[in-house]
């Protein structure tokens, strides 16, 4: 009966549909990678060459003449800087909100929650004028600090900190353990999976924070990889081989990060939602 159902026409149809959908999702990646190995004439020929017959590295060589290395470096610096600061500030704040008793705790927590449910749009323009006044346009600070203020990380870390057994902290206190040691020796190890999830989440969203990067960067050398690729698109219009090489460079690091940490990632998303 069960085996019968498993092979029933509904299941087969569902799996075929799933396979088609997966191919549809994978095709753009295939087109990026295969396109990056085609020279201009081949890339735009119709009918299209489904598999590059004479793969070439010329696009990558041409791309190397643009500041692509600098863009990659910028993207990594910004994403890593944001991630480190978010994880540091959020784990400390989340721990305090979950495990400490102090006047104003509820108020601070609700301020974070209220800000989190408001969309970013009200912030962007004033943020830009403020950073422009500070002469922070074209600096790493402008690309890093605003993202650190966003309270999602604090919220997520508070959720994770609630799983720290209070007895454990209490016992440590009786043994004469100071607040700082209590945090680093007891709380942090327990919160570690949560911090992992937050780190990947922050890294990827910072890498893809195209709008903020677009308005806060002016010079070519401060561009991030997504900005650089977008600029190439305007400059080289239909040189798709070269554009795809750029697109490949911008997405491959993310795919590796995601593949390595998928478990943490799924965990973070579900925890943020279930208790949200």
């Amino acid at each position: 009966m069960r085996t019968n159902e498993r092979l029933g026409p509904g299941k087969v149809a569902a799996n075929v549909l799933l396979l088609l959908a997966a191919l549809f999702y994978l095709f753009p990646f295939y087109w990026i990678v295969s396109g990056s190995f085609k020279i201009q004439n081949v890339a735009i020929q119709i009918p299209p060459e489904w598999f590059p017959k004479e793969p070439t590295l010329r696009n990558y060589a041409d791309l190397a003449k643009s500041p692509v290395l600098r863009w990659t470096l910028n993207s990594f610096l910004v994403s890593l800087g944001t991630t480190a600061l978010v994880c540091g500030t959020a784990s400390m704040a989340g721990y305090a909100l979950a495990k400490k008793n102090f006047p104003g705790r509820k108020l601070i927590f609700w301020a974070f929650i209220a800000a989190m449910s408001l969309p970013k749009q009200v912030v962007m323009i004033p943020l830009f004028t403020m950073l422009a006044k500070w002469r922070w346009i074209d600096t790493y600070w402008a690309l890093i600090f605003p993202a650190v203020g966003w309270p999602f990380g604090v919220f997520l870390m508070r959720q994770f900190s609630q799983t720290i057994p209070t007895e454990l902290l209490e016992a440590a206190r009786i043994d004469g353990c100071g607040e700082a040691r209590m945090f680093t020796r007891i709380a942090l190890p327990i919160m570690q999976p949560g911090i992992g999830a937050l780190a990947i989440f922050t890294f990827i969203s910072s890498w893809n924070d195209y709008f903020m990067q677009l308005i806060l960067v002016r010079s070519t050398k401060m561009q991030t990889l997504p900005l650089g690729i977008a600029a190439l698109q305007q400059e080289f219009l239909t040189n798709y081989g070269m554009l795809m090489a750029g697109a490949a460079i911008a997405s491959v690091p993310m795919i590796i990060v995601f593949a390595c940490f998928q478990k943490y990632f799924a965990q973070g998303i579900t925890l943020g939602a279930v208790k949200g």
Binding site: F29, N208, P226, L227, I229, A247, A250, S251, I255, F258
Partner: peptide, 8 residues
């Protein structure tokens, strides 16, 4: 992966 890459 990268929203810009996919869009391009």
């Amino acid at each position: 992966s990268s929203v810009v890459s996919i869009t391009v």
